[in-house]
C-alpha cells in the first residue's frame, strides 16, 4: 500500500514537472528556430550592412536590408506611447489606490480591464478612421497615418498594464507608513508624493518597462495607423511623419516572401532583434521589481 502510494506521488510529481517544463522547452525551441533562420541571412548578406544600413529596400537590386529605419520607427512610436501613457497611467494608479473611495475604485477597475481585452485590430480600426483624420486636421498634416497616431493608440493599449502594475506597487506600501506621515502633519498629497510614490518607485518603473514591452511588440494597430513608410524618421519632427516599425514590416512582408529566400531570413533577423529587445526590457522590469522587494524589507 505504502509502496503504491509513493509511486503514485512520484508519478504525479513527474507529470507536473514535465508539463511545467513544456513552456520552457517551447521557448527554447522558438529561440532556436528564430535565431537559426536569422543567422542564415548573414551567409549571403553582410551583418554590418544589416545593423547599420539606412535603407530597407528588399526589392532593390541588390536588395537592401538596413535595420535602422525600422528600429528607429519602433523606438519612436514606443517612446511617444510611453510619454503619453506613463503620466496618465501613474496618475490613474494613484487615484485608484490612494484617493478614490473603495466603491469608485471597484467601479473603475473593471473598465481598465476591459481596455486590455479589446482586440488590437479594433484599436487599429479606431485609430485609422477616427484618430488619424482628426490629427491630420488639427496638426495640418498631409496624412494622419503618422507615428503620433500609433503612439496614441499604443499608449491607450499600454495603459491597463501600467495602471494595474503601478497600482499593485502603490497598494503594497504598508498603510503604517502612510499613517506615520499623516500623523506628522503631512497632507494626503504630501504623503502620496513624498513617501508613497518614492517607496513604490521601483514597482512603478517595472510597470513602465512592461508597458514598454507591450507597446514595442504590438503589431496590428501600428501597422494600420502609422503609414508604414520605411524611412529613417527625423527627430523630433518624425513623430508627425509616417514610419514603419519592425513588427509591421514582418507582418506586411512575411506573407509575400518565398520561404528560404534571403528576404525571408532578413525578416527573421528583424524578429530576432525585436525578441532580444523585449527580452531585455522584461528582464530589466524583473530586476527592478526584485530590487524593490528588498528595499521595503531592508537588507
Amino acid at each position: 500500500m505504502v509502496f503504491k502510494r509513493r509511486h503514485k506521488e512520484k508519478l504525479i510529481e513527474a507529470t507536473l514537472f514535465w508539463i511545467g517544463s513544456l513552456t520552457i522547452i517551447i521557448l527554447i525551441l522558438i529561440c532556436l528556430f528564430l535565431f537559426r533562420d536569422a543567422l542564415t541571412l548573414f551567409s549571403t548578406h553582410s551583418f554590418y550592412s544589416f545593423v547599420t544600413g539606412s535603407l530597407w529596400y528588399p526589392t532593390a537590386d541588390p536588395p537592401l536590408y538596413g535595420l535602422i529605419p525600422l528600429l528607429l520607427g519602433s523606438v519612436l512610436v514606443t517612446f511617444g506611447a510611453i510619454c503619453i501613457s506613463v503620466p496618465l497611467g501613474i496618475t490613474s494608479a494613484i487615484y485608484i489606490s490612494e484617493i478614490a473611495s473603495p466603491r469608485v475604485a471597484s467601479f473603475l477597475k473593471p473598465f481598465i480591464e476591459i481596455l486590455a481585452g479589446i482586440p488590437s485590430v479594433v484599436y487599429g480600426f479606431f485609430g485609422l478612421v477616427v484618430l488619424a483624420p482628426y490629427l491630420q486636421l488639427w496638426l495640418d498634416l498631409s496624412t494622419g497615418q503618422v507615428a503620433l497616431t500609433g503612439s496614441v493608440m499604443l499608449a491607450v493599449m499600454a495603459l491597463p498594464t501600467i495602471i494595474s502594475i503601478s497600482e499593485d506597487a502603490i497598494s503594497s506600501i504598508p498603510s503604517s507608513i502612510r499613517e506615520g506621515s499623516l500623523a506628522m502633519g503631512a497632507t494626503n498629497w504630501q504623503t502620496i508624493y513624498k513617501v508613497v510614490l518614492p517607496a513604490a518607485l521601483s514597482g512603478i518603473s517595472a510597470a513602465v518597462m512592461l508597458g514598454m514591452g507591450r507597446a514595442i511588440g504590438e503589431t496590428m494597430t501600428v501597422m494600420m495607423v502609422t503609414g508604414n513608410a520605411a524611412v529613417i524618421p527625423g527627430m523630433p519632427e518624425g513623430i508627425v511623419e509616417s514610419v514603419r516599425t519592425m513588427t509591421a514590416t514582418i507582418a506586411l512582408e512575411m506573407g509575400e516572401v518565398p520561404i528560404g529566400s534571403e528576404h525571408y531570413h532578413a525578416l527573421f533577423a528583424v524578429g530576432s532583434v525585436l525578441f532580444i529587445m523585449t527580452f531585455l526590457i522584461n528582464l530589466a522590469a524583473d530586476i527592478i521589481k526584485k530590487k524593490y522587494r528588498f528595499k521595503l524589507e531592508g537588507s
Partner: peptide, 19 residues
C-alpha cells in the same frame, strides 16, 4: 488638522520608518 498633528505627535505600535 495639519497644525493639530504638528502639535500632537504620535508613535505607533509597529516601528514605521519611511523607506
Amino acid at each position: 488638522v495639519v497644525e493639530l498633528r504638528k502639535k500632537v505627535g504620535m508613535v505607533f505600535q509597529k516601528p514605521n520608518p519611511f523607506p
